[in-house]
Protein backbone atom coordinates (compact mmCIF):
# COMPACT_ATOMS: atom_id res chain seq x y z
CA UNK A 1 0.00 0.00 0.00
CA UNK A 2 1.31 3.43 -0.87
CA UNK A 3 -1.10 5.32 1.35
CA UNK A 4 -2.71 3.91 4.46
CA UNK A 5 -5.01 5.91 6.71
CA UNK A 6 -6.63 4.28 9.67
CA UNK A 7 -9.01 6.28 11.82
CA UNK A 8 -7.09 9.43 11.06
CA UNK A 9 -8.35 12.52 12.90
CA UNK A 10 -7.25 16.09 13.24
CA UNK A 11 -8.98 18.48 15.61
CA UNK A 12 -8.28 22.17 15.85
CA UNK A 13 -8.97 24.27 18.89
CA UNK A 14 -10.40 27.57 17.75
CA UNK A 15 -10.52 30.44 20.21
CA UNK A 16 -13.06 33.07 19.45
CA UNK A 17 -13.37 36.31 21.40
CA UNK A 18 -16.88 36.49 22.81
CA UNK A 19 -16.47 39.66 24.81
CA UNK A 20 -13.81 42.11 25.71
CA UNK A 21 -11.83 39.63 27.78
CA UNK A 22 -13.57 36.29 27.43
CA UNK A 23 -12.74 33.83 24.73
CA UNK A 24 -14.70 30.80 23.76
CA UNK A 25 -12.90 27.56 23.04
CA UNK A 26 -14.33 25.38 20.34
CA UNK A 27 -12.98 22.14 18.89
CA UNK A 28 -13.27 21.84 15.13
CA UNK A 29 -13.00 18.28 13.81
CA UNK A 30 -11.45 19.03 10.44
CA UNK A 31 -10.72 15.35 9.86
CA UNK A 32 -12.78 12.96 11.92
CA UNK A 33 -11.73 9.33 11.69
CA UNK A 34 -10.85 8.78 8.05
CA UNK A 35 -9.72 5.36 6.82
CA UNK A 36 -8.79 4.39 3.29
CA UNK A 37 -5.88 2.96 1.36
CA UNK A 38 -4.33 3.61 -2.01
CA UNK A 39 -2.53 0.73 -3.71
CA UNK A 40 0.58 1.13 -5.85
CA UNK A 41 -0.26 2.38 -9.33
CA UNK A 42 -3.78 3.52 -8.45
CA UNK A 43 -5.15 6.96 -9.12
CA UNK A 44 -7.63 8.04 -6.48
CA UNK A 45 -9.73 11.15 -6.49
CA UNK A 46 -10.16 12.66 -3.06
CA UNK A 47 -13.17 14.91 -3.27
CA UNK A 48 -15.43 16.96 -1.11
CA UNK A 49 -16.84 20.45 -0.70
CA UNK A 50 -14.71 23.33 0.59
CA UNK A 51 -13.85 22.78 4.23
CA UNK A 52 -14.58 19.07 4.04
CA UNK A 53 -11.10 18.26 5.32
CA UNK A 54 -9.24 17.58 2.07
CA UNK A 55 -6.35 19.97 2.59
CA UNK A 56 -5.96 18.94 6.23
CA UNK A 57 -5.65 15.33 5.10
CA UNK A 58 -3.08 16.22 2.44
CA UNK A 59 -1.06 18.13 5.05
CA UNK A 60 -1.02 15.09 7.31
CA UNK A 61 0.03 12.88 4.40
CA UNK A 62 2.99 15.15 3.64
CA UNK A 63 4.19 15.60 7.22
CA UNK A 64 3.24 19.28 7.49
CA UNK A 65 0.61 18.54 10.13
CA UNK A 66 0.55 16.08 13.06
CA UNK A 67 -2.59 13.95 13.33
CA UNK A 68 -4.58 14.23 16.55
CA UNK A 69 -5.19 10.48 16.48
CA UNK A 70 -5.19 7.56 14.12
CA UNK A 71 -2.55 6.07 11.93
CA UNK A 72 -1.05 7.35 8.70
CA UNK A 73 1.63 5.69 6.55
CA UNK A 74 2.81 7.00 3.21
CA UNK A 75 5.08 4.69 1.21
CA UNK A 76 5.47 2.89 4.52
CA UNK A 77 6.82 5.96 6.33
CA UNK A 78 5.43 7.97 9.19
CA UNK A 79 5.11 11.44 7.62
CA UNK A 80 5.99 13.85 10.45
CA UNK A 81 8.75 11.76 12.02
CA UNK A 82 10.33 10.76 8.69
CA UNK A 83 9.57 13.99 6.82
CA UNK A 84 12.85 14.34 4.97
CA UNK A 85 12.97 10.70 3.87
CA UNK A 86 9.35 10.97 2.75
CA UNK A 87 10.08 14.14 0.77
CA UNK A 88 12.33 12.08 -1.50
CA UNK A 89 9.54 9.62 -2.25
CA UNK A 90 6.60 11.92 -2.91
CA UNK A 91 5.88 14.81 -5.21
CA UNK A 92 3.39 17.49 -4.20
CA UNK A 93 1.57 20.13 -6.20
CA UNK A 94 -0.46 22.69 -4.30
CA UNK A 95 -2.60 24.64 -6.74
CA UNK A 96 -2.31 27.74 -4.57
CA UNK A 97 1.34 27.55 -3.46
CA UNK A 98 4.40 27.57 -5.62
CA UNK A 99 7.49 25.54 -4.95
CA UNK A 100 9.34 27.23 -7.77
CA UNK A 101 11.78 30.10 -7.30
CA UNK A 102 9.82 33.24 -8.07
CA UNK A 103 12.63 35.39 -9.43
CA UNK A 104 14.48 32.70 -11.39
CA UNK A 105 13.92 31.17 -14.80
CA UNK A 106 11.94 27.94 -14.76
CA UNK A 107 14.96 25.93 -15.93
CA UNK A 108 16.93 27.20 -12.93
CA UNK A 109 14.23 25.96 -10.51
CA UNK A 110 14.45 22.51 -12.08
CA UNK A 111 18.24 22.53 -11.79
CA UNK A 112 17.91 23.42 -8.09
CA UNK A 113 15.34 20.73 -7.40
CA UNK A 114 17.56 18.18 -9.13
CA UNK A 115 20.38 19.26 -6.78
CA UNK A 116 18.09 19.13 -3.75
CA UNK A 117 17.04 15.59 -4.56
CA UNK A 118 20.62 14.64 -5.43
CA UNK A 119 19.71 13.34 -8.88
CA UNK A 120 22.41 12.18 -11.27
CA UNK A 121 22.65 14.86 -13.97
CA UNK A 122 21.93 12.35 -16.72
CA UNK A 123 18.86 11.02 -14.93
CA UNK A 124 17.56 14.52 -14.22
CA UNK A 125 18.21 15.51 -17.82
CA UNK A 126 16.25 12.58 -19.18
CA UNK A 127 13.25 13.14 -16.93
CA UNK A 128 13.24 16.85 -17.56
CA UNK A 129 13.48 16.42 -21.33
CA UNK A 130 10.47 14.13 -21.24
CA UNK A 131 8.42 16.65 -19.24
CA UNK A 132 9.53 19.54 -21.42
CA UNK A 133 8.48 17.57 -24.44
CA UNK A 134 5.12 16.30 -23.17
CA UNK A 135 4.11 19.48 -21.37
CA UNK A 136 5.42 21.82 -24.03
CA UNK A 137 7.64 23.82 -21.69
CA UNK A 138 10.47 24.64 -24.09
CA UNK A 139 9.14 28.08 -25.04
CA UNK A 140 9.25 29.49 -21.49
CA UNK A 141 12.04 27.56 -19.79
CA UNK A 142 14.12 30.73 -19.59
CA UNK A 143 11.30 32.95 -18.32
CA UNK A 144 11.32 33.97 -14.64
CA UNK A 145 8.52 32.16 -12.85
CA UNK A 146 6.80 35.37 -11.76
CA UNK A 147 6.20 36.24 -15.42
CA UNK A 148 4.54 32.93 -16.32
CA UNK A 149 0.81 32.54 -16.88
CA UNK A 150 -1.02 30.33 -14.40
CA UNK A 151 -1.25 27.51 -16.94
CA UNK A 152 2.46 27.69 -17.72
CA UNK A 153 3.31 27.82 -14.03
CA UNK A 154 1.17 24.79 -13.18
CA UNK A 155 2.87 22.78 -15.89
CA UNK A 156 6.15 23.85 -14.29
CA UNK A 157 4.89 22.85 -10.82
CA UNK A 158 3.91 19.38 -12.02
CA UNK A 159 7.30 18.92 -13.65
CA UNK A 160 8.96 20.09 -10.42
CA UNK A 161 6.96 17.55 -8.42
CA UNK A 162 7.85 14.68 -10.77
CA UNK A 163 11.52 15.43 -11.36
CA UNK A 164 12.73 13.02 -8.69
CA UNK A 165 10.48 10.21 -9.94
CA UNK A 166 8.33 10.05 -6.80
CA UNK A 167 6.36 6.93 -6.02
CA UNK A 168 3.36 9.02 -5.01
CA UNK A 169 2.15 12.23 -6.58
CA UNK A 170 -0.18 14.36 -4.45
CA UNK A 171 -2.14 16.94 -6.40
CA UNK A 172 -4.15 19.53 -4.45
CA UNK A 173 -6.50 21.29 -6.87
CA UNK A 174 -4.07 21.09 -9.79
CA UNK A 175 -6.45 22.47 -12.39
CA UNK A 176 -8.07 25.28 -10.41
CA UNK A 177 -8.16 28.48 -12.46
CA UNK A 178 -6.73 26.87 -15.59
CA UNK A 179 -8.13 27.31 -19.09
CA UNK A 180 -9.53 24.31 -20.98
CA UNK A 181 -6.41 23.78 -23.09
CA UNK A 182 -4.06 23.76 -20.10
CA UNK A 183 -6.39 21.44 -18.17
CA UNK A 184 -6.49 19.04 -21.08
CA UNK A 185 -2.70 19.12 -21.55
CA UNK A 186 -2.20 18.42 -17.86
CA UNK A 187 -4.65 15.51 -17.80
CA UNK A 188 -3.11 13.94 -20.88
CA UNK A 189 0.32 14.27 -19.33
CA UNK A 190 -0.71 12.71 -16.03
CA UNK A 191 -2.36 9.80 -17.83
CA UNK A 192 0.84 9.23 -19.79
CA UNK A 193 2.97 9.52 -16.64
CA UNK A 194 0.92 6.81 -14.96
CA UNK A 195 1.13 4.56 -17.99
CA UNK A 196 4.91 4.87 -18.32
CA UNK A 197 6.15 5.26 -14.74
CA UNK A 198 3.31 3.63 -12.84
CA UNK A 199 3.19 6.60 -10.46
CA UNK A 200 0.49 6.44 -7.82
CA UNK A 201 -1.66 9.57 -7.75
CA UNK A 202 -3.94 11.04 -5.12
CA UNK A 203 -5.70 14.18 -6.22
CA UNK A 204 -8.22 16.61 -4.80
CA UNK A 205 -10.25 18.66 -7.20
CA UNK A 206 -13.46 20.55 -7.74
CA UNK A 207 -13.57 19.53 -11.36
CA UNK A 208 -15.51 16.34 -12.07
CA UNK A 209 -13.81 16.02 -15.45
CA UNK A 210 -10.45 15.67 -13.68
CA UNK A 211 -11.86 12.72 -11.78
CA UNK A 212 -13.43 11.16 -14.84
CA UNK A 213 -10.34 11.47 -16.96
CA UNK A 214 -7.79 10.45 -14.35
CA UNK A 215 -8.99 8.40 -11.46
CA UNK A 216 -9.94 4.77 -11.03
CA UNK A 217 -11.70 5.33 -7.78
CA UNK A 218 -12.93 8.13 -5.56
CA UNK A 219 -13.05 8.80 -1.87
CA UNK A 220 -15.67 11.39 -1.01
CA UNK A 221 -15.41 13.26 2.28
CA UNK A 222 -17.76 15.59 4.01
CA UNK A 223 -17.32 17.25 7.41
CA UNK A 224 -14.17 15.24 7.97
CA UNK A 225 -15.74 11.82 7.33
CA UNK A 226 -15.68 9.48 4.36
CA UNK A 227 -19.18 9.34 2.88
CA UNK A 228 -18.44 7.27 -0.19
CA UNK A 229 -15.66 5.17 -1.64
CA UNK A 230 -15.79 3.22 -4.82
CA UNK A 231 -15.58 3.20 -8.55
CA UNK A 232 -16.50 6.13 -10.73
CA UNK A 233 -19.45 4.50 -12.34
CA UNK A 234 -21.01 4.16 -8.97
CA UNK A 235 -20.41 7.78 -8.05
CA UNK A 236 -23.10 9.54 -10.03
CA UNK A 237 -25.46 6.62 -9.54
CA UNK A 238 -24.81 6.51 -5.81
CA UNK A 239 -25.53 10.18 -5.65
CA UNK A 240 -28.52 9.89 -7.91
CA UNK A 241 -27.16 12.74 -9.97
CA UNK A 242 -27.04 12.23 -13.72
CA UNK A 243 -25.59 14.00 -16.66
CA UNK A 244 -28.44 15.61 -18.51
CA UNK A 245 -28.84 15.78 -22.27
CA UNK A 246 -30.82 18.86 -23.30
CA UNK A 247 -32.08 18.75 -26.90
CA UNK A 248 -33.72 21.54 -28.90
CA UNK A 249 -35.91 20.13 -31.67
CA UNK A 250 -36.83 21.58 -35.04
CA UNK A 251 -40.53 20.88 -34.34
CA UNK A 252 -42.48 20.11 -31.18
CA UNK A 253 -42.55 16.41 -30.45
CA UNK A 254 -44.16 14.16 -27.84
CA UNK A 255 -41.98 13.19 -24.83
CA UNK A 256 -38.95 11.18 -25.96
CA UNK A 257 -39.63 8.14 -23.80
CA UNK A 258 -37.73 4.89 -24.20
CA UNK A 259 -34.67 6.20 -26.02
CA UNK A 260 -31.88 3.65 -25.30
CA UNK A 261 -29.34 4.88 -22.74
CA UNK A 262 -31.60 7.70 -21.49
CA UNK A 263 -34.46 8.37 -19.15
CA UNK A 264 -36.98 11.05 -19.98
CA UNK A 265 -37.02 13.85 -17.43
CA UNK A 266 -39.10 16.77 -18.67
CA UNK A 267 -40.14 18.86 -21.67
CA UNK A 268 -40.56 22.60 -22.20
CA UNK A 269 -42.17 24.82 -24.80
CA UNK A 270 -44.69 22.19 -25.80
CA UNK A 271 -41.99 19.61 -26.53
CA UNK A 272 -39.53 21.89 -28.40
CA UNK A 273 -36.90 21.43 -25.66
CA UNK A 274 -36.59 18.14 -23.82
CA UNK A 275 -34.40 16.98 -20.90
CA UNK A 276 -33.10 13.41 -20.86
CA UNK A 277 -31.01 11.85 -18.10
CA UNK A 278 -28.04 9.99 -19.55
CA UNK A 279 -27.60 6.46 -18.28
CA UNK A 280 -25.07 5.42 -20.94
CA UNK A 281 -22.88 7.00 -23.60
CA UNK A 282 -23.84 10.49 -24.74
CA UNK A 283 -22.89 9.78 -28.36
CA UNK A 284 -25.14 6.74 -28.60
CA UNK A 285 -27.99 8.69 -26.99
CA UNK A 286 -27.62 11.57 -29.43
CA UNK A 287 -27.59 9.19 -32.36
CA UNK A 288 -30.70 7.46 -31.08
CA UNK A 289 -32.53 10.75 -30.54
CA UNK A 290 -31.63 12.13 -33.97
CA UNK A 291 -32.91 8.95 -35.55
CA UNK A 292 -36.36 9.80 -34.12
CA UNK A 293 -36.56 13.56 -34.43
CA UNK A 294 -34.75 16.43 -36.16
CA UNK A 295 -32.26 18.10 -33.81
CA UNK A 296 -31.51 21.84 -33.93
CA UNK A 297 -29.13 22.07 -30.95
CA UNK A 298 -28.00 20.14 -27.91
CA UNK A 299 -26.07 20.61 -24.68
CA UNK A 300 -24.90 18.20 -22.00
CA UNK A 301 -25.10 19.44 -18.43
CA UNK A 302 -22.45 17.81 -16.23
CA UNK A 303 -23.34 17.39 -12.58
CA UNK A 304 -20.91 19.43 -10.50
CA UNK A 305 -18.96 17.91 -7.69
CA UNK A 306 -20.65 20.02 -5.07
CA UNK A 307 -24.08 18.65 -5.88
CA UNK A 308 -22.78 15.08 -6.06
CA UNK A 309 -21.18 15.48 -2.66
CA UNK A 310 -24.25 17.14 -1.20
CA UNK A 311 -26.45 14.27 -2.32
CA UNK A 312 -24.04 11.68 -1.00
CA UNK A 313 -23.76 13.49 2.30
CA UNK A 314 -27.47 13.65 2.85
CA UNK A 315 -27.64 9.96 2.19
CA UNK A 316 -24.84 9.31 4.68
CA UNK A 317 -26.50 11.52 7.26
CA UNK A 318 -29.79 9.72 6.78
CA UNK A 319 -28.27 6.27 7.22
CA UNK A 320 -26.03 7.21 10.14
CA UNK A 321 -27.31 5.77 13.43
CA UNK A 322 -29.23 8.29 15.47
CA UNK A 323 -27.32 10.11 18.17
CA UNK A 324 -23.90 10.06 16.46
Amino acid sequence: MIVELDGLSRHFVVRRPTGRFRREKRVVRAVDGISFTVAAGECVGYIGANGAGKSTTIKMLTGILVPTSGRVRVTGLEPVRQRRELARRIGVVFGQRSQLWWDLPLAESFRLLAAIHRLEPAVARARLDRCVDLLDLAAFLDTPVRQLSLGQRMRGEVTAALLHAPRLLLLDEPTVGLDIVSKEALRAFLTEERRVAGTTILLTTHDLSDIERLSDRVVVVDSGRVVHTGGLAGLAAAAGVDRVLVVDLAEPAPPLEGVPGTRFLSAEAGGLRQHLALTGSAAAAVAAVSARVELRDLTIAEPDIESVVRRLYHRAAATRPAGS
Binding site: K59, T62, R84
Partner: peptide
Protein backbone atom coordinates in the same frame (compact mmCIF):
# COMPACT_ATOMS: atom_id res chain seq x y z
CA UNK B 1 2.25 29.50 3.43
CA UNK B 2 5.72 29.17 1.95
CA UNK B 3 6.92 27.50 5.13
CA UNK B 4 4.92 24.44 4.00
CA UNK B 5 7.00 24.36 0.84
CA UNK B 6 10.19 24.31 2.93
CA UNK B 7 8.77 21.34 4.83
CA UNK B 8 8.11 19.50 1.57
CA UNK B 9 11.79 19.35 0.67
CA UNK B 10 14.22 16.71 1.94
CA UNK B 11 16.38 19.39 3.60
CA UNK B 12 16.63 21.07 6.97
Amino acid sequence: GTFDVLLLRPLS
